[in-house]
Design a protein around this nucleic acid. Sequence first.
DNA 1: CTTCTGACA
DNA 2: TGTCAGGA
Length: 99
Amino acid sequence: MGPSAADTDRGVYGISVAAELVGMGPQTLRLYEQRGLLEPERTEGGTRRYSEDDLHRLRRIGELLDDGLNLAGIVMVLGLERDNARLQATNTRLRARRH
DNA sequence: CTTCTGACA
DNA sequence: TGTCAGGA
């Protein structure tokens, strides 16, 4: 794997680099944040720092956008996916205890 | 780099 | 509605 473990939630990329990596414009990334799809870290100076998780999220947003969803719908889908992942994890733990 | 506003399909 | 261009 990566050298120094997996803190993929740590903001490292500036907005220009992040936008370049996911094939979007910087303004688009700002809009997504304004709409509540994303919340990258901020430096003390107030500039955004996008994490690897943020990049995955941005690519997921691109997919859903491609599927014809609007930003409001994507917010809901991402929320449901997060909830679902949590439920699945809980479900797996319960099964392991063999109730 | 930031936020904000207007134009376009 | 989402994206982009330009200004402050």
